[in-house]
Design a protein around this nucleic acid. Structure first.
Lengths: 342, 342
DNA sequence: TTGAAAGCGCTACCAC
DNA sequence: GTGGTAGCGCTTTCAA
């Protein structure tokens, strides 16, 4: 059933039916009601493609995941963000178009997206510090919101970010106060802005305690179990192994914990592993020490917020850029293990 | 730059330009070349909306995730599947539209999707045993592939599935052969087909060893850390606690491992935890015992395969349904802990 | 308050 | 080989 047919059934013009359905004021109430009832009865839903062509708006939002920063999609956290965002989009009548793209073709791709006109706005993920996409999208006039920040760029664009630096600064300080002195950082790829910020938080906390970072205790790689395992395994074999690990993602923490479990007998003691991006809410108040984390629900919240920002950008294209900073939650959770021998 | 403008620049008709760009044979080579060069020079990309309206095909594929079976999206495995699928879609020039939907409105939603015409086919996830969506989509004539199966329905639709029953049967048998007798099953929601199949594999293996399942050692819930933790915590407090856990997802295994770590001192011994859907490839040959798992890369492979099937369904709408079964990989991995006292 | 008709940008049929 | 043109299904002036 399309508009024409529906109009014929009602003995009305397409115009009137369209107006009635889209809430234009100049339709008589009785007419509108009749139209609405018929629409429901005949299960009429306007064809998106035709509507998109006629209005110039596609009513869908793009989410672009570069596969250069691998495994982004695989990060469980990302799923939560998308879930939250989707909620907001659906409520506003928008679809979500996912594009996972190969590395390198950035510019061409975004120009193509613009020309293809299949999205009205874009959510950007895992920016680098001077991400070229930000400038490009501004130039193209395509509304966008960045999940994360591009530190080296002027902050005249919309973003939503975790306070990654502060989170890692606090976590490191916490471990230092427990007496740890050899604290390892298992970080994501530091080309990515958030990873860079996390390291600066870590380094800053060390400095505040009069310590200098040891390159042997810092690693930067894809946030996978494998990389977490490899890095921790290597560090635990050092003459002076770490007594605590600070991980950048749940998956890395899983790998790290495995490596720790393997090494426990050799070391003759346990090693603390705390991590960002894990959902430990169920351990709240259940144990002895606080750790920092972005919980699943807070990530969903982030997605919802970022999506709402994007929808606003789309609604008023000339509007001011918006920014939103989220703080990591402190959660009383998993034991950090025994304090190290001094 | 649109087709009309491009055609004017070239002093050709829209028709010819369109044909040249879309590879129709009747265009002279020289003309085609000239057109193609101009298209690149002017950065011309056809407008998707217009193309979709004219051709009747939207060149995009829907992925519907019901939020009733919560946290599906959050399952890291799902991200891998999507990544693989996206690869295949992109290669074929298709976009991927993600729809996370509220429970209950199934039928209305799918009819709406059909009417809206914004996707040419649908990938279905986590079906129940008699999932009504299968029949509905067939009735609507919308091509689809199910990731998973609906056991209670006649198998005259396309699906791709893991051999969940066999995987859990083997894993259980493996633990039994190690000497375990109290083996707990931490399962996903058993309305979902895969969870049901997993349980039957578990039960079957027990039966083959002359054992009956103990309801106190079987749980079925959302596949989250929280639920894994809760279930394991409860079971470990039993007078006769399990000596091994069999988990249905990586997240549940994380929660379970935490509960085990908490209980270790009380129990005076370790408890084995093995899980499906974890990426243990890095432990291959690194340790002592085989466990079963669907690795990250195999899930990506599954996504790619399922997507290819769907694209074929779309290409020839009347074609035969296709089915593909994947076997879980056996991986030499994480220690299952000490064999229990007999 | 309603309707006729001109597009939106492209494809595909029919002529030449 | 190439071009003219009628739609695809909807929105949106402009007229009535």
């Amino acid at each position: 059933m399309n508009l024409k047919e529906l109009a014929q059934h009602l003995n009305l013009s397409q115009t009137t039916v369209s107006r009635a359905l889209n809430g234009y004021p100049e339709v008589r109430d009785a007419t509108r009601k009749r139209v609405q009832e018929a629409a429901i009865a005949f299960n009429y839903t306007p064809n998106t493609r035709a509507k998109a062509l006629a209005t110039g708006r596609s009513m869908s939002i793009g989410t672009v995941i570069p596969t250069s920063n691998k495994h982004e999609m695989v990060n469980p956290i990302f799923g939560d963000f998308v879930t939250g965002a989707s909620e907001a989009y659906v409520k506003a009548g928008y679809d979500m178009v996912l594009t996972l793209i190969e590395d390198g073709e950035e510019e061409r791709l975004y120009r193509a997206i613009r020309a293809k006109g299949n999205v009205d706005g874009i959510m950007l993920h895992s920016p680098t510090m001077d991400d070229p996409r930000v400038g490009l999208l501004k130039e193209l006039g395509l509304p966008f919101v960045v999940h994360g920040r591009a530190s080296h760029l002027p902050p005249d664009y919309s973003w939503l970010d975790m306070n990654n630096k502060r989170a890692f600064q606090r976590a490191t300080a916490f471990l230092l106060e427990l007496g740890h002195r050899r604290i390892a950082l298992i970080n994501g790829l530091e080309q990515q802005d958030f990873a860079f910020r996390r390291r600066s938080g870590y380094v800053e906390a060390l400095a505040q305690h009069g310590l200098t970072e040891d390159p042997a205790l810092m690693t930067s790689s894809e946030m996978t179990e494998l990389e977490g395992y490899r890095a921790a395994h290597r560090m635990l074999a050092l003459p002076d192994p770490p007594t605590a690990f600070l991980c950048s993602s749940m998956l890395m923490a899983i790998g790290t914990r495995r490596a720790v479990a393997d090494a426990r007998l050799d070391l003759g003691r346990d090693v603390s592993v705390i991590t960002h991006d894990d959902d430990l809410s169920y351990l709240k108040n259940g144990q002895d020490v606080p750790i920092f984390t972005a919980t699943r629900s807070s990530m969903r919240d982030a997605g919802r917020r970022a999506a709402t920002m994007l929808l606003q950008q789309i609604a008023e294209p000339g509007g001011q850029p918006m920014q939103y900073m989220m703080e990591a939650e402190l959660i009383v959770g998993q034991s950090t293990g025994p304090a190290p021998r001094r």
